[in-house]
Structure formats: structure tokens, C-alpha cells
Amino acid sequence: MTWIDPTKLGDWYEAFSPSLSLYARQWVDAVAADDVVQDAFVQLMRQRSEPVHVKAWLFRVVRNGAISRTRSRRRRRRYELAVGQAGAAPFESRPDDLIDARLAASLLGELDGEQREAIVLRVWGGLSFDDVAATMGVSKATAFRRYEAGLNALRKRLETSCKTNTPTDSTSTRR
């Protein structure tokens, strides 16, 4: 018996599944990430009452499901390193993007796993720092520090990337 309206479930799926799938891809590949997200919605459907904060609840369930799928620490580590470099692109490329989608995915993949998790939860999950901290199982201050450090690391890498590309551009301009 379903206690949650299926229409609501469908709306939530449309709204949250892309960011949930992106979040799950930190631990598993794209196909498994979609399975994990679907399992999370099946679990949500089985709830007798609607969770207080559905989005945060879904992110926690997806995290647990994805981590349990990795089965071993080594495999988890391999996925963490490989994220953004293998499988389908995690972002949809659009012409009006301020940052190139593939570059962003690549840079995210180079980040520390905890920093990347905080950024994904905050930027694409749209969670508050309270929810980010609860999902990651750390304090709010720790969650903020990881988020800030991740963004700093991203900025530095973006600057490095721009500096690396600039001489090429200038050279081509000179020609």
C-alpha cells in the first residue's frame, strides 16, 4: 500500500533524480547510480509517512545505497578516483554555461572525495549546511570547511587551467 501520492513521487523524481544520480556517481558508475536512485525512490514509496525533509532524506538513502554497493574500500577508492573521467558525462553541456561542463567534471574528479561530496550536496543538491552535515555525518563547521576547501581547490585548478590555455591562445593570436 502506498501512503505517498504517486504524483508527488513522480514530481520529486523529476526534480531530484539528476542531482541524486550525480551524487551517487561519486561511489558507483552511471548505470549503478541510476539503480541506486531508483532504489531510494522505492524506499521512499514504502514509507508510511512523508519524511520531514524529503530531499535530505533521499540524499542520505542514496549515499548509503551507493556506499553499500561498492562493497570494498578499494573498489570505493577506485570509483572516487575514476569519477568524472569514465562513463557518461555527469553534466549536460550547454552553450551558455560559464564553465565548460567537461572541464568542471574533470576538475571535480580530481578533488578530494569529502570535498567533492560537500560541493555536490551544496551546489547541485541545494541542501543547507545543516543537511549537508547530517548527510555526511559530520558537524556543520566541518561540512562548511570541506565545502570551502573544495571550492578553493577548484578555483586554483581553474586558474591553472586558464593559465595553461592562455599562452596557446596568445600564440595562436600572434600567428
Binding site: P6, L9, P18, S21, Q38, V123
Partner: peptide, 23 residues
Amino acid sequence: ASALGRLEPATPSGDRDAMLFEL
């Protein structure tokens, strides 16, 4: 962070109807 937020995560392979069917 705002610039990153404008990037749209890729849509999962299954659509809404498929997900509801699976549910």
C-alpha cells in the same frame, strides 16, 4: 559556486513513467 550551479546534472537514463512503473 553560482557558476557551477548553472551546470545541469545529466538526467538519469530512466524517465518519470519508467520509474513509476518500476515502483
